[in-house]
Amino acid sequence: TTLHFDLDGKKLQYTGVSEEIARLVEELKRRGVDLKEIVRILEELLK
């Protein structure tokens, strides 16, 4: 799965993300978590 974000005018793309992580990101968005925080979490998970 590939995730795309537009953060402060920067286009971020994460490829090869598992379905689980993609679902987690969608859930965080639904809960109103700040996009910067979501990206920070995502980068930690993908290390």
Rank of each mutant, 00 (worst) to 15 (best):
D34L: 11
K10C: 06
E43A: 05
K10I: 14
L12A: 04
L45F: 06
E43Q: 06
T15D: 11
E43F: 04
S18V: 05
L35Y: 05
S18I: 04
V17P: 01
L42K: 00
K10Q: 11
K29F: 15
I38A: 02
G32L: 08
V33E: 12
Y14W: 06
E37W: 07
A22D: 03
L35T: 15
K36V: 12
L3Y: 03
V39N: 02
L12Q: 05
L35S: 08
Y14V: 03
L3R: 00
V25A: 04
E27A: 14
R40C: 04
A22P: 01
E43D: 13
R31K: 12
L28P: 00
V33D: 07
H4K: 05
L46I: 09
E19A: 11
K29Y: 15
R23Q: 14
V17T: 02
E37L: 09
E43K: 03
E26V: 14
I21L: 07
E20G: 07
R30S: 11
G32Q: 12
I38Y: 01
V33A: 06
G16F: 07
T15H: 13
E44P: 04
T2L: 04
K47G: 11
R30I: 10
E44L: 12
K29I: 12
K10N: 10
K29M: 14
G32M: 11
K29A: 14
G9A: 02
K47R: 13
R40D: 08
E44H: 13
S18N: 10
L24M: 13
E26G: 12
D34S: 11
E43I: 05
I41K: 06
K11I: 07
K47S: 11
G16S: 06
K11G: 06
K36W: 15
E19D: 13
K11N: 08
S18G: 06
Q13K: 14
K47P: 08
L24Y: 15
L42S: 01
Q13G: 03
I21Y: 08
Y14N: 00
L45P: 02
T2H: 06
E26T: 15
I21A: 09
L46F: 06
L42Q: 00
E43Y: 05
R23M: 11
R23I: 12
H4Q: 11
R23F: 10
G16H: 14
E19H: 14
V25L: 05
H4T: 15
Y14S: 00
R31A: 08
L7C: 04
T1L: 15
L28F: 13
L42P: 00
